[in-house]
């Protein structure tokens, strides 16, 4: 999968957790999950679990701490897909 393909899919993964849907209109790599999309921090683990299920990967807690932005989340997914 390419980075752009994952980016398109990840929008669908996080959509249920974003209350202000208009914030998803311009999803750049630099957009922060909590700061910009206003995702409740309690849901970060739920998003990680959704990503694990969708891509059949395992994300360790060290990697979770690196998933602050859309771009960082995509990088973690790509890295884990290569390893798994």
């Amino acid at each position: 999968m390419t980075k752009d393909e994952i980016k398109a899919e990840i929008k669908g993964v996080i959509e249920p957790y974003v209350m202000q849907k208009e914030l998803l209109d311009n999803l750049s790599d630099e957009i922060q999950l909590i700061g910009d999309l206003k995702i409740n921090s309690a849901h970060v683990v739920d998003i990680v679990l959704d990503i694990e299920e969708k891509y059949d990967i395992t994300i360790d807690d060290e990697s979770i701490n690196k998933m602050n932005t859309i771009g960082e989340a995509i990088e973690v997914i790509l890295e884990k897909m290569k390893k798994d």
Binding site: P16, Y17, A42, H43, V45, D46, L49, D61, I64
Partner: peptide
């Protein structure tokens, strides 16, 4: 504050506890 009735919350187990 955490509202455990939130339908978006998935079950938590020892693995998720280890994350935090």
């Amino acid at each position: 504050i955490v509202d455990l009735t939130d339908p978006l919350l998935k079950p938590r187990s020892q693995r998720e506890i280890s994350f935090i």
